[in-house]
Every structure is written in C-alpha cells, then in structure tokens.
Simulated scan of single mutants.
Amino acid sequence: MPFPGSHSQVFYRGANGVAYLLRSRFILKHLHFPKFQANTPASALFHQILMAAAAASSSKPKRNYDVFLSFRGTDVRNNFVSHLYTALDQHGLFTYIDNEELKKGQKISPALMKAIEESHVAIIVFSKNYASSPWCLEEMAKIMECKAHNDLIVLPVFYKVEPREVRGGRESYGRAMAKHESNFGKDSEKVKRWKEALFDAGSLFGWGLNDG
C-alpha cells in the first residue's frame, strides 16, 4: 500500500523477508532529511521508519524513550545513523543514541540496558561489522528479550547486508560468530544466546538499503 502523497509502491517484500526499495515519487515537502535529498532510497526509507516508529510509540503507554537505536558506530554512526537520528528528532520522536564507543574490556552500562527497557521501539541497524562487536550483540539480545517480554517493537534495517547473512550466520556474520566461539568457547551460552537473537531479529520484516 503506498503512503499518502506517493504515486507508486516503493517497497516490496522479497522472499527473504526484507522490504526492498524500488522507486520513490513521494511528495516529501513536510519532511527534511539532512544530506539526503527527497525521492532517494534513503529518504523513502526514513519516511517509512518514521511512520512505523511514530505509530508504535503513540499507541503505547508513556515510556522514557520513543526509539532506541542499536548500531555499529564504525559502520554507520557518521552517515546513515546520524541522519536517521536527526530525522527522528525533527519529528518529535525522543530517541536514545549511545554516543560512546566502548573499548575492549569495558562493559555495557546498566543505564543503556535500562534505556532499552524504557523504549517503545528499537531500530537495529545491521551492517557489515555489527556482529563483530560483543556489545552490539548484547544490545541486540536484550532488545529481542524485551520484544518477547516487554512488548518492545523491533524494526530492523539491513544496511548493505542481506537478512539471510544475519539470521544464518553467513559472510561477515559467520566470520564474526566463529571468532566469538573461539574467544568464549564453542559451547558458550553467551554465544548461543547471540546466535538465537540474530536468527530471530534477522527473520523479522524489515528494510534493506544498499545506498547511503
């Protein structure tokens, strides 16, 4: 179903469960996306995410955050995610974004985990190096736990990766999980939990973006 103001269907759901961008003729005069011009795949994707996040957060009892963003900073912090955050903020969606890159040996703060619990929507931006970070995987596992128990809405974005890579442990995700098994042990409960969460998250309906 096209969005209001559009002249054509922009997304289709492929056999792999991801919504791919076809072409956009949206009238985006009320939306502003820094550095992304209207009628591009990125701006159309932002529009879809904004609508989904706004609908989900408005229909729930009040929580501290409308949206929690989970992403690998070295991949997308200074491009896709910074523009997405700005778009969310401009449209009144109070969004939690972690501006600190954890260093080796550091642990995820309880405040960050609490922020996930206190959000209506979590947007997971799966990128090439997402699974190489134990902290990203811990965030993602917590998000999927809150989806099951706290009614958290999860919106995955597959940024230059395929959903099958995420849920099936292929390509960079397969290499990353093999390294984690080497570090934590092949029978590690932590790694098993990460794999299960990746499978579940990668099986959700989401959006694919290969540009931006």
Rank of each mutant, 00 (worst) to 15 (best):
S43Y: 07
A56L: 05
P61E: 13
R72C: 05
P41G: 01
S70N: 13
L45Y: 02
S70A: 13
A56K: 05
G92D: 06
Q48F: 12
H83N: 12
D89G: 01
N39M: 08
D89Y: 11
P61Y: 12
Q37L: 12
D75T: 08
L50Y: 10
S82Q: 09
A52K: 12
V67K: 09
D89V: 09
R77P: 11
R72Y: 06
F80M: 10
S43T: 06
Q48I: 00
A55L: 09
G92V: 00
R63S: 09
A54H: 10
A54I: 00
S70C: 14
V76K: 07
S70K: 00
A87S: 14
S43P: 03
F46A: 08
L50M: 07
R77Q: 13
V81K: 04
L69S: 09
L50S: 03
H47A: 08
A44S: 12
Y65H: 15
Q90A: 14
D75K: 07
L45K: 04
Q48D: 14
A53N: 04
K62Y: 11
T86C: 04
T74C: 10
H91Y: 12
P61G: 14
S82G: 05
T40F: 00
L84T: 04
S57A: 15
A53H: 03
N79L: 06
V76T: 15
A52L: 11
Y85G: 00
S58D: 11
S59D: 14
S70Y: 06
N39P: 01
P41K: 02
Q37V: 05
S58A: 15
H91S: 06
T40Q: 03
V81Q: 07
T74Q: 13
L88Y: 05
V67A: 10
N78H: 15
R63G: 11
A42V: 05
R72L: 00
R63T: 09
R77W: 10
K60P: 03
P61W: 12
Q37F: 07
N79R: 03
V81C: 11
T86V: 03
I49F: 06
S70M: 09
A44P: 04
